[in-house]
């Protein structure tokens, strides 16, 4: 029965993959995907409800509602799933059995984070698919209606009307919008993981994560006050600086509202925003590792 075990590797993507897919499986078997049904109901319901409105408004509401719900759902999922994943392993002593194997702590943490990021990606893709389907169906209906109503109009006018419909339906600028939603959720998964490495309970982690979410949306006001104006009051300046340094500027990732309102985003700017988001995700994960590496279990 004695065979030589495989040579130990200092860093193994295979082990990380095993931990990540296990985390994903855990979340899937906790039936977290059921929220997708809620999402489907929401967009179908809103589509049906908005039938009598002019088509601009129908598209507007469908996009707002779908993207708003996607944003909320992915963020909630990121916070709740990550907040429970580490404390649960500690409480059940499963963590001991894993770390008693030749698994470096960085791999364990990375695996858990990737598992959540995977879950978020899957959810985002599924919700986007439902959203795209709803949008395409609505577009199809509106086009058919326009053709019917303008059957006797000159060809040029009909074409212009149809162009108008297409412009209000799916636009490629929605893609960066959806990506920014995912990015924000990824930042929160990483941030929540960091919180849970030193938090004493999941509730604490969740509450702090929520607070950061709200402060993050007004951080830019503090930052602009701090960097932009001279303050005689040192206390106030220190306070503003702390807010600006400690919290992420989440408003930068709120591209969706502008995109739905028809303001296209430039590629270069989008790439920079994604870069910043990735930096946040990485730094939070790194700090989580630093704390976890020295944690006494």
């Amino acid at each position: 029965m004695i065979t030589t075990p495989p040579k130990h590797r200092a860093f193994s993507p295979w082990r990380i993959h095993a931990i990540a897919s296990n985390a994903l499986l855990e979340l899937a078997r906790l039936k977290v995907f059921y929220f997708l049904l809620l999402f489907a109901l929401l967009i179908i319901g809103s589509s049906a409800f908005m039938m009598e409105f002019p088509f601009h408004e129908q598209f507007q509401v469908l996009k707002d509602l779908s993207l708003g719900a996607m944003s909320i759902f992915t963020w909630l999922l990121a916070v709740l799933a990550t907040a429970m994943i580490l404390p649960k392993d500690i409480e059940d002593r499963t963590l001991y059995t894993i770390l008693a194997k030749p698994v470096p702590r960085v791999e364990y943490l990375l695996g858990k984070l990737l598992g959540v990021l995977w879950l978020l990606l899957l959810s985002t893709v599924l919700m986007s698919a439902m959203f795209a389907l709803a949008l395409a169906t609505k577009e199809h209906l509106v086009v058919a209606q326009t053709m019917r109503e303008m059957a006797h109009a000159p060809q040029e006018q009909l074409q212009a009307a149809l162009r108008d419909v297409h412009e209000h339906a799916f636009t490629s600028s929605l893609v960066p919008g959806v990506l920014s939603i995912y990015l924000k959720a990824a930042i929160f998964a990483s941030l929540t993981l960091l919180l849970s490495t030193f938090a004493t309970s999941s509730i604490f982690t969740i509450i702090v994560s929520f607070v950061i979410y709200f402060i993050g949306h007004v951080q830019h006001i503090a930052r602009e006050e701090w960097l932009g104006s001279a303050h005689p009051m040192a206390m106030k300046k220190v306070f503003l600086a702390l807010v600006a340094l400690l919290f992420p500027d989440l408003q930068l990732f709120n591209l969706v509202d502008d995109i739905v309102a028809g303001n296209a985003i430039q590629m270069a700017l989008f790439v920079k925003t994604v870069g910043l988001g990735c930096a946040y995700t990485f730094v939070y994960a790194f700090v989580a590792y630093v704390i976890f590496a020295y944690k006494e279990l």
Partner: peptide
């Protein structure tokens, strides 16, 4: 270790604040 973690977050904060400031403008 918690102090070190806080210092890393603050250090990153100092690096990212001007970047955020510029991005907000952009």
């Amino acid at each position: 270790v918690h102090l070190i973690a806080l210092l890393i977050v603050l250090g990153f904060g100092a690096a990212k604040a001007p970047v955020e400031q510029r991005l907000t403008g952009e």
